[in-house]
């Protein structure tokens, strides 16, 4: 029971990060119907930006409060990563509207390979470990030091709280602002939205920027949680976040969050109770099974194929 509760907390922490990345996949898929394969690598770029910003703020500028530093790091990462995502959309995806079916996906795969290797060349192939931060834990059950104690670390609280706050802001933007309305309109019918005066190109760009911002938040939180980044860190979390988006029903934003939490829980529980060597197999198997047997996911609309 204690193990289960502990794993539940760990799973929700991990799932928050996946959920934030998954929103980027699901929004882009909803609006232009492509799998943005490079999104995982955008997330990876954001972890590097966050790492550099964190080191610059703490060592060069000497900001004393770690919370203030984290907040600044998150904002810097969000801004910088959105430029990356905007540029990627502009260079690699926008010229391909109306090209053949597989062109955007192939272009996205190329972009993903490019980003991964660009970071490897620019930042070096080795792990970049930070000393652990905010390790103090709160005991929810059991005494300190007991084997069956259930704990939650400060950084886990920050991760879950930051995710919740950002999701609330994001939800407000999508549901209540004219920007969100334009986005939903383009999602429903691109041509009709354009005829009614929605700037489709701009809306798509903003979708990529929002996705990148959430990925950057996930990147900062990932850095906080694991403290280690590497140039190929985008691939596996990217595929898992895509799995989360598919599991929740691709195109559905609450679905992406739900899927992220479920994937986080599945992964953590699998590692705890079955085998930690095969924990990635669990996530990949979920992807395969969901796509084959339940392609519209938990909260998605079934897809109708039109000629």
């Amino acid at each position: 029971m204690e193990t289960f509760l502990q794993q539940l907390i760990n799973g929700v922490t991990l799932g928050s990060i996946y959920g934030l990345i998954a929103i980027g996949y699901t929004m882009v898929f909803g609006i232009i119907g492509m799998v943005n394969f490079a999104h995982g690598d955008v997330f990876m770029v954001s972890t590097f930006i966050a790492l550099i910003a964190f080191l610059a703020l703490t060592t060069l500028l000497g900001i004393p409060s770690i919370f203030l530093a984290l907040l600044l790091v998150m904002i810097i990462a969000m801004v910088m990563t959105s430029v990356w995502s905007w540029a990627i959309e502009r260079i690699a995806y926008r010229p391909l509207r109306g090209s053949f079916r597989l062109a955007p996906l192939i272009s996205a795969i190329g972009m993903s390979i490019f980003l991964m290797n660009f970071v490897q060349v620019a930042q070096g192939p080795r792990n970049k470990p930070l000393p652990p931060m905010l390790n103090e834990v709160i005991y929810l059950m059991g005494e300190p030091g007991a084997a069956n104690a259930v704990t939650i670390a400060w950084r886990q609280i920050i991760i879950i709280a930051a995710t919740a706050i950002l999701l609330a802001i994001f939800w407000y933007v999508v549901q209540k602002t004219s920007l969100g309305r334009a986005q939903r309109a383009v999602e429903q019918d691109r041509k009709m939205a354009a005829l009614l005066g929605v700037d489709v190109d701009r809306t798509v760009s903003i979708t990529f920027v929002i996705g990148a911002m959430l990925a950057a938040v996930a990147g900062t939180l990932y850095l906080l949680q694991y403290g280690v980044v590497r140039f190929d860190d985008g691939f596996i979390p990217g595929v898992k976040a895509f799995t989360a988006a598919v599991l929740g029903g691709i195109g559905s934003i609450p679905g992406a969050v739900l899927g992220g939490l479920l994937i986080g829980l599945i992964e953590v529980m699998w590692a705890a109770y079955v085998s930690s060597d095969y924990k990635n197999v669990a996530a990949f198997s979920v992807l395969v099974v969901v796509l084959i047997f339940m392609p519209s996911g938990l909260l998605g609309r079934p897809e109708v194929e039109k000629v």
Partner: peptide
């Protein structure tokens, strides 16, 4: 730089001569 060039060439190919 091999994979860097590969990745970029894939994008360029799709944009320029799919």
């Amino acid at each position: 730089y091999r994979m860097l060039i590969f990745g970029f060439a894939m994008v360029a190919m799709m944009v320029w001569k799919p």
